[in-house]
Nucleic acid binder design. Structure first.
Lengths: 150, 150
DNA sequence: TATTGTTATACTCTATAACTATA
DNA sequence: TATAGTTATAGAGTATAACAATA
């Protein structure tokens, strides 16, 4: 029943190695994946409610509370009161946060570019073509399950 | 000097999404990446010294001490004294550990297979071809830097 | 009563520094 | 003195449960 000759095991190993590599490269910028994903979203989509953020990032509300506290301490994000709802807070990225994001993005891009320079032409070609595919499928899958929950 | 039309940013996003997906799927088995990588290595290569393990996994010695302690508590690994060196310990995977690894491997394979079923034929083809390429380059890069250190 | 956010608690994963025991 | 391993300490990142404030 195997669709691919090598079986999925090789792919899993490949993905795990890529995970390690990217995580290490990401750490160079001083931010973990969790710590950078939220500022990135805030910079993309503007200030948001804490609950909304937690849901969007797929983490628990207490987790997001802590994460935002850490981001605030690092000067990357800011809490402001929500004028329309006394219970809520709005979380926004700071200008420092945006700068750090840009720097980090550049570093990761450099790491990935260097990785691809070490590939053969066909490998590079195939990678460029293939990599967005799993992402697309995952994205679609997540959207669908969110609709299920709603 | 961009080699690819889309630029590396799209690839980074793709990789990050894959990381999240695989991490979530891996968690299903009850073991994090760190907690499963070491038993996997032990099952592949046999019992090893703690220091050796730490170096191979790229973590600090205290980290490995803790990790092995957790694995022992979970019944997945075992410490034995090294007869030839009173200071050392040998870490081995248990039969339970091997079973859990197998189960986990199957679960991940299923997740990945399902992911690939949602792809178009060409996407699937390209993914199978491309995914091992970054892994190969990363692997080579790690080997080289280890030689540098030695 | 339901929702928003925080606090309390606990566990994994990670690191560095200090320590113990053996070589 | 150098090496192997553990303990101490600290911080990120994650979760659930309990709580306070507001709607």
């Amino acid at each position: 029943m195997d669709t691919s000759p090598e079986g999925p095991d090789d792919l899993i190993v490949a993905v795990e190695q890529m995970i390690r590599y990217v995580r290490q490269s990401a750490r160079t910028g001083g931010l973990s994946t969790a710590a950078s994903s939220t500022p990135a979203r805030l910079s993309r989509e503007g200030p948001q409610r804490l609950t909304e953020l937690a849901r969007a990032e797929g983490v628990s509300q207490p987790n997001m509370t802590q994460l935002v506290t850490r981001l605030e301490r690092a000067g990357l994000a800011r809490r402001t009161a929500d004028a329309s709802d006394g219970r809520g807070v709005l979380v926004a990225v700071t200008s420092t946060g945006v700068e750090v994001l840009d720097r980090r993005r550049a570093e990761r891009a450099r790491a990935l570019r260097q990785l691809m320079e070490d590939m053969t032409g066909p490998e590079r070609q195939a990678t460029t073509t293939a990599l967005p595919a799993p992402a697309r499928v995952i994205h679609h899958r997540q959207d669908t399950s969110e609709e299920d929950r709603a």
